[in-house]
Nucleic acid binder design. Structure first.
Lengths: 236, 236
DNA sequence: TAAATTCATATTATCTATAATTTTGGCGCG
DNA sequence: CGCGCCAAAATTATAGATAATATGAATTTA
């Protein structure tokens, strides 16, 4: 029995408010975390019996979890052939980056009038936390906190949910490239955005944000199989 | 036995390419259609036993269909209290309109270089079909065809899927306001967009599209319960 | 002999049927 | 009028049956 491994779903802290009770949502959350962090590699088969056994549950809640992952774009399901972890390529990374840019700009434009000094201070703390983080996971968490803090006051729940989903996919790319080795970097864009917002120069902040989100880092990375390939990730 | 009522899912013709085989996807498609067209009113409870019985199926595929509807934003599920048709208000209509504006502009910007004369001609046919349609359903279908034709060449599958989902929600608003009575209108925006695209003036086309999608019509409408209320719908 | 096809087996997804928890609604009682 | 308990209904999960798919050996064909 390896039930003790089950507890660790650290990525998604604040999900869609609904369902926190049911087994299906638990499974879906944990599987999403494994896919995002790269524990489950792209293309890996998700066999419902095995997963059901691991969680000490039956296949039905597992299937429901699959449908959720499918809708999030983290898994793909072929009708009677089962479910696999969704794969991705550079084209999709770019696509997600541009969607994020569009939607985050929209969100920030609506959030800007409601931003308070306190929020901006907390966003700055998140930036500092990101600069000081020693691994990808904590950096990603800080980065997501920064964006969420600035965008949440737009008060558009569906928009925020869509952005969250895109963030998850971005994070997946990020983990895939920088899982093991991680170099500390200082985030000048975040500070620039905060600076403009403090001066009330919303349009400037929007422009920086739009560029920032679309910035895609590249680096060579040694894959699990040992071969060297080019990796990429949205870094904003 | 009322199994003959089951066949009519006319709204979503071209879904996400996956699953066309399984019972769960069938149920989800048909329920989505009923929600969008207003056959199922906002807030209505979706009881899995009844639905299972209607489709001559069991609870399990129904539950899977629920998870999909939930992800599409057409239904909301409270953990052990069941699933209801998602309700909506003017605020959400505006939100969806703005999201559509952002994403459709992004899509058209990428699609524009790949638009051919043949595509533009077919889009014009769709516009004519819309102007000549005598009921909401056919108008909506023509309108969606117009947008899809122009945006599809962007070759960004995730973006197109997101836009499709938003279109479904928009259509829901539309049906809610204009279900019974429908006045013919000529769509000047569509023609303006086509004109600019034919002249290669992409930026102008983008500007019209952005305004067009956010145009929200309002009219008083008599609800099922007989009371008079103000309705609204994205018309673009 | 090698390639391809067929057939049998085993694995897996899908669905039905049934049991256990939880919510809901009503009824009596304070 | 409000509160708590009991019954009915609905959701959630489990276990078992069915159908489809993948795998591999055996047979046929070039």
């Amino acid at each position: 029995m390896r039930l003790d491994r089950v507890g660790g779903a650290n990525y998604l802290c604040c999900m869609a408010a609904t369902n926190e009770d049911t087994i299906a949502s638990r499974i879906s959350r944990i599987l999403a975390d494994r896919i995002i962090t790269g524990q489950l590699e792209p293309g890996a088969k998700l066999r419902q019996d095995h997963i059901a056994e691991e969680f000490g549950a039956s296949h039905v809640p597992v299937r429901e979890a699959f449908r959720r992952l499918e809708a999030q774009g983290l898994a793909v399901s072929e009708p009677r052939r089962g479910v696999r972890v969704a794969s991705f390529d550079l084209k999709e990374v770019r696509e997600v980056a541009q969607m994020r840019a569009s939607l985050e700009v929209l969100a920030l434009r609506h959030a800007a009038p409601h931003l308070t000094a306190s929020i901006l201070d907390r966003a700055e703390e998140a930036t500092v936390a990101g600069d000081n983080s020693s691994d990808v996971r904590s950096w990603e968490e800080a980065n997501r906190r920064f964006h969420r803090l600035l965008l949440a006051p737009c008060d558009m729940p569906r928009l925020l949910a869509a952005i969250d989903d895109l963030h998850a996919v971005s994070a997946r790319f990020l983990f895939s490239a920088w899982r093991s080795d991680w170099e500390v970097r200082t985030d000048h864009d975040h500070r620039a955005i905060l600076g403009f917002l403090r001066q009330g120069k919303v349009d400037n902040a929007l422009a920086v944000l739009e560029r920032h989100v679309q910035w895609i880092g590249q680096k060579p990375v040694r894959s699990a199989s040992g071969s060297l390939r080019e990796a990429f990730a949205i870094v904003g």
